[in-house]
C-alpha cells in the first residue's frame, strides 16, 4: 500500500470538492447517486461539433437492414451525407418521409439554422466511478449523435485531431475498452484503470514532498480527460483549497 492510494472515502471527498468547484466554475459536473446504493458517480455532459468518420455499415442482415421502401412518389434522392453520420445508421426514416401531408404547412417564422450544424454535433457523456479492485477512479464515457446513437470507438477516435491522435496512441492512456456501466448497465467505453496508479503515484508523491494537497480526481482527470475530449479548466488548480485540515488529513501517510 502506498500513501497515494485513493480509498473510497477519499474518492468521494475529492468528488464533493470537485462538484463544489464546478458549481462556481459552472462547467457542469454533478454527483449522481447510484440507485439504492451508497455508490454514485460524477457526471458531466458536453456538446461539440465534430466531423467524424463513421464505420462502414456491417453486412446487411438479409433484407432487414434497410427499412421498407418508402412509398413517397417522386421524392428526389438527396445527396448522401458522405463524411457525416452513417446514412443507414441514423437519420430520417426514409420510408416514412413524404407520407405525411398533415402538419406540413410551411412556417414563415422559422429561421433556418445552417444545415450542417445539427448533424455535426456530438454529445459526450463522462462518468467518473470508483474502482474498488484498482483503488483508483475510472473514467467512463460515451459519445453519441443528437439522435442518441452511440459512436463506435473507431468513430470516437476519428473525432480526435490526427496530430493529437498520434501522441495519444503512444501515451500510457491508450487503453480504452468497453464495459457495461456498473451502475447503469449500459455499454460505455472506459479508460482502463490498470495504469492509473502507476501514473498518479509520482504526481501524488511530488505533491506530498512539497507539502501541497492536490485533489487526486481533479489531477487525474486533467491528465486522462484530454484523451477523450474532456478538458479540465486550469481554474481548478487555482481553486484548490489550501485548508489546513484537508491538508493534514490527506498528507498523513497511512503506514507511517
Amino acid at each position: 500500500m502506498s500513501w497515494s492510494v485513493l480509498d473510497e472515502e477519499g474518492f468521494s471527498r475529492c468528488c464533493r470538492l470537485l462538484v463544489q468547484q464546478s458549481q462556481s466554475l459552472r462547467d457542469g459536473w454533478s454527483w449522481e447517486p447510484g440507485q439504492g446504493s451508497a455508490e454514485g458517480y460524477l457526471r458531466k455532459t458536453t456538446l461539440r461539433t465534430a466531423a467524424f468518420t463513421s464505420r462502414p455499415e456491417r453486412e446487411p442482415e438479409g433484407s432487414g437492414a434497410a427499412p421498407e421502401q418508402h412509398t413517397a412518389p417522386g421524392r428526389a434522392e438527396e445527396p448522401s451525407q458522405s463524411d457525416l453520420a452513417a446514412p443507414a445508421a441514423s437519420g430520417d426514416a426514409d420510408d416514412l418521409t413524404g407520407a405525411e401531408d398533415d402538419g406540413a404547412d410551411e412556417d414563415d417564422w422559422v429561421c433556418r439554422a445552417p444545415a450542417e450544424s445539427s448533424s455535426r454535433v456530438l454529445q459526450y457523456e463522462y462518468h467518473v466511478l470508483y474502482s474498488c479492485s484498482y483503488s483508483v477512479p475510472v473514467l467512463y464515457f460515451r459519445a453519441f449523435t443528437l439522435e442518441g446513437r452511440s459512436l463506435s470507438l473507431d468513430e470516437v477516435w476519428s473525432c480526435v485531431p490526427p496530430q493529437y491522435r498520434a501522441r495519444l496512441q503512444q501515451s500510457p492512456w491508450n487503453t480504452i475498452t468497453q464495459q457495461e456501466h456498473p451502475l447503469l448497465g449500459q455499454p460505455f467505453f472506459l479508460v482502463h484503470p490498470c495504469r492509473t496508479d502507476e501514473l498518479m503515484r509520482p504526481v501524488m508523491q511530488a505533491a506530498q514532498q512539497q507539502l501541497r494537497w492536490v485533489n487526486y480526481v481533479v489531477t487525474w482527470l486533467s491528465m486522462v480527460g484530454p484523451l477523450v475530449g474532456l478538458e479540465m479548466p486550469l481554474s481548478y488548480a487555482a481553486l484548490s483549497p489550501q485548508s489546513p485540515t484537508a491538508t493534514a488529513a490527506e498528507q498523513e501517510p497511512s503506514e507511517a
Binding site: D92, A93, T97, G148
Partner: peptide
C-alpha cells in the same frame, strides 16, 4: 428531419 423534410427520424441502435 435531417434532410430538412417534414418527416420522422429513425436511429439504428443495433450496434450499441
Amino acid at each position: 428531419n435531417p434532410k430538412g423534410a417534414m418527416g420522422p427520424r429513425m436511429v439504428n441502435l443495433s450496434e450499441c
